[in-house]
Computed example of a mutant assay.
Amino acid sequence: MADVHGPVALDSARAEVVLNRMQLLVTRKLDGLLQGDYLGLLPGPGTEAGESREYRPGDDVRRMDWPVTARTTLPHVRQTVADRELETWLAVDLSASLDFGTAKYLKRDLAIAAAAAVSHLTVRGGNRIGAVVGTASELTRLPARPGRKDAQGLLRTIALTPPRPGRADLGALIDMLNRPPRRRGMVVVISDFMTPVSQWARPLRKLGVRHDLLAVEVVDPRELELPNVGVIALVDPETGSMHEVQTADAKLRHRYAHAAAAQRAEIASAIRGANASHLRLRTDSDWLLDIVRFVAAQRHARTRGTTR
């Protein structure tokens, strides 16, 4: 029993159908969630200085307005105004490990879906979107351009990126958005983060200092726990090596689940340490519903004065 899908490259016709369907789904579900003066996917306050108001529990202490606080003897924070134009960058990891899926989708499908949702939510009013795409053999930069037509072209390029055996350097991919420094904006990193945290945590923290940062983690349920189905053949999509595992062994399943939980906890901790929002998409869940819930929760948190 092989519990893995082989690499699947989208041809032009299929890519067009998939992207059009995603666009329709995203438009129906997400339009109307972000009406008002919000910045991008994560409805935030922007960077331009605005008026001051009294501090409320949950406000970011980095926005304390100390002169007003001293004059009034009450803590105040400086409100900021959303930027008129937003520049959004996607860092899309298309390593061979994303050509895997044991449920409704491949992880690669979810990566493209997340890119489509971010594109739809941010490309309006002159906003620009660009991307860096990583495969095992190369890192590609797609320049940021305004307009839905260019955004659709960018998504087609991502969807048609051919799968290659091996692992992209996630740290180098993220660092492409640190050098050269860009104007403040929004950065979305889409990956399964299945590389040592030490390789990408520092570049991610650097991004979080300057930008509104979102990490989209794509996960397959077999990466979290093994089913009890007897002998299962697992193929590593990055190396091609195959291992047969006896899943009837309860101790082995427990050790696997424990190690997987520890790995995911380390990933989540590194993402929090970068001051990034964290969205997890699973191949056995409704990805669009997960995105809708995430965006709604972010808006609710922002309107209550919290930052994450």
Rank of each mutant, 00 (worst) to 15 (best):
Leu19Phe: 04
Gly36Ile: 00
Asn20Lys: 06
Leu41Thr: 12
Gln35Tyr: 10
Leu34Ala: 07
Gly32Ala: 07
Leu33Ile: 06
Asp37Cys: 01
Pro43Arg: 01
Gln23Asp: 15
Gln35Ala: 11
Val18Lys: 14
Gln23Met: 09
Tyr38Ala: 07
Val26Ala: 15
Val17Trp: 11
Leu42Trp: 02
Pro43Val: 01
Asn20Ser: 14
Asn20Ala: 14
Leu41Gln: 04
Val26Asp: 00
Arg21His: 11
Gly44Gln: 09
Thr27Trp: 08
Met22Tyr: 15
Leu24Met: 13
Gly32Ile: 07
Leu19Thr: 03
Val17Asp: 14
Val17Gly: 09
Gly32Trp: 05
Val18Asn: 09
Leu39His: 02
Leu33Pro: 04
Leu24Glu: 13
Glu16His: 15
Asp31Ala: 10
Leu39Ser: 11
Leu24Gly: 08
Leu30Ala: 07
Val26Cys: 05
Lys29Asp: 13
Thr27Asp: 10
Leu33Gln: 08
Leu41Lys: 08
Gln23Phe: 07
Leu24Trp: 12
Tyr38Gly: 15
Lys29Ala: 13
Arg21Gln: 12
Asn20Trp: 02
Gly40Tyr: 02
Leu39Thr: 11
Leu19Met: 03
Asn20Arg: 12
Ala15Gly: 13
Gly32His: 05
Asp37Ile: 01
Val17Leu: 15
Leu25Ser: 12
Val26Met: 01
Gly32Gln: 04
